[in-house]
Design a protein around this nucleic acid. Structure first.
Length: 422
RNA sequence: CGGAGUGUAGUGUAACGGCUAACAUUCUUGAUUUGGGAUCAAGCGACUCAGGGUUCGAAUCCCUGCACUCCGACCA
């Protein structure tokens, strides 16, 4: 589905938000027909929503590949034995498992994370320091039995996540990779259009590092409290803020503003927490068995999509940054009944599509006002408007949904113009 | 998991314990209209979340369950 006629799209927009949603991201994504709520914390992606999700996925994939990540796809069903070895099977330790069982009564888990199976799998392939470092990642649904799912796409029970894992021979090698991934993450948020609102944030680091790094996008819809100095470029999650930490960063409490953020990514040093427990080891020069140093790096795609909506939407609807917009252009034909204009618009649609532009073509037989409102709600950044007026002047209107600017442009210049800005 | 609240056509709302559950929108048909959800006409569409109870009579009161929202706790 590169381009599509809106009359063929099975989804429809809604005038009103569903009463069972309060969060802005869910209201708008449902009204505009991007997602469907199946139950609390569980959303299905409709054609428009999937287009956005795939764009986000591709941006992440590109950046993961760039740091040497190798994509794979792990199983969802998880073996209890593996998780018992790392002491994470017991509900008292990890309380958000979805567990099920085989017909024979043996327990299984639905993957809430994939450290265990991947670490176990890597035992077959990592034997020597020459096999290191390695980076493996996947896009997969995670299942977490949250006590309280909420905020639309922001915290679900089933959600698509990119998880990357790094395997290094020592701390030095690990830190190089960690920094590279950190940079890749920064690129990702910039590319999806959240660069200005997303800050690298120090958060609790677990056992093996004083801090982990979160990427926090500032929005009131966020769950986390962040202490931020825009000047010094320092952001600290409230969960780790204390006098000692302030001293570490050489900063005073009153230099920091308190803001709300949503965690759109988290990168962790895992040390040998999993490699020791599951015996993922390699032989060093002396033939000694050394546990592999690991890191894990996650991004929730649905949450990222929700964050984009939260941050950028206005009272009319969604505003997609061009890199994640479901289509490049929303073509509005205001006079579908007028044969000449209709033919013109149809040709124009074909021309754009053949030039490689992804077009949502509103060819529906509805009034102009409805088309304008729907286009603003759906939020494709570039609207191209054709109507009787264009026929008289030989020009069409190009409107930028993000800035609200609009200009008339000669029709034979449009394709070039569009190719230039997308 | 603790607390608060809400369940009524596809959607959003209304209805004192009492007529055939109403209105808007969507949808269907027709007319008119076409640069910001226009107008008119005629229709379709709900045994009021489920199960019990109180009552001559329950969408309305009570109980249980389920679902959903919010606050809190939790968040490998």
């Amino acid at each position: 589905m590169k381009s599509i006629r809106q009359s063929q799209l099975f989804t429809k927009t809604r005038r009103e938000a569903p009463k069972d949603e309060v969060s802005k991201n869910a209201e708008l994504l449902i009204r505009a027909g991007f997602v469907h709520k199946d139950m609390t914390g569980v959303y299905s992606y409709l054609p428009l929503g999937l287009k956005v999700l795939k764009k986000i996925e591709e941006i992440i994939r590109k950046n993961m590949d760039a740091v040497g990540g190798q994509e794979m796809f792990l199983a969802t069903l998880q073996s209890k034995e593996l998780w018992e070895k790392t002491n994470r099977w017991d509900d008292k330790v990890v309380d958000n498992w979805f567990k099920t069982e085989l017909k024979n009564g043996n327990e299984l888990g639905l993957g809430l994370s994939h450290e265990e199976p991947l670490t176990n799998l890597m035992r077959e392939y990592i034997r020597s320091s020459k096999d290191l470092p390695k980076l493996a990642y996947q896009f997969q649904n995670k299942f977490r039995n949250e006590l309280r799912a909420k905020s639309g796409l922001m915290r679900g029970r089933e959600f698509l996540m990119k998880d990357l894992y790094s395997f290094s021979k020592d701390e030095e090698q690990h830190l190089v990779i960690y920094e590279q991934v950190k940079q890749a993450y920064t690129n990702i948020y910039k590319e999806v259009g959240l660069g200005d609102n997303t800050f690298l944030t120090f958060a609790s680091g677990g056992i093996f590092a004083p801090f982990s790094h979160e990427f926090q996008t500032l929005t009131d819809a966020g769950e986390d409290l962040i202490y931020l100095s825009r000047e010094k470029g320092i952001a600290i999650n409230k969960e780790v803020l204390n006098d000692e930490v302030l001293k570490t960063f050489n900063i005073e409490r009153d230099e920091l503003e308190e803001v709300k953020g949503v965690e759109v990514g988290n990168i962790f040093s895992l040390g040998t927490r999993f490699s020791s427990a599951l015996e993922l080891v390699y032989a060093n020069e002396e033939g000694k068995r050394i546990p592999v140093i690991m890191g894990c790096y996650g991004i929730g795609l649905g949450r990222l999509m929700g964050a984009i909506v939260e941050v950028l939407a206005d009272e009319k609807g969604i505003k997609w940054p061009k890199n994640v917009s479901p289509f490049h252009v929303h073509l509005l034909n205001l006079d579908t009944k007028n044969e000449l204009i209709n033919e013109w618009a149809n040709n124009f649609f074909d021309g754009l599509t053949q030039a490689g532009v992804e077009v949502l073509y509103d060819d529906r037989d509805v009034r102009p006002g409805e088309k304008f409102n729907d286009a603003d709600l759906i939020g494709i950044p570039l609207q191209v408007i054709i109507g009787a007026r264009s026929f008289e002047t030989g020009s069409v209107e190009i409107k930028n949904r993000l800035t609200g600017d609009s200009e008339a442009m000669a029709i034979d210049k449009i394709v070039d113009y569009v190719m230039n800005v997308i």
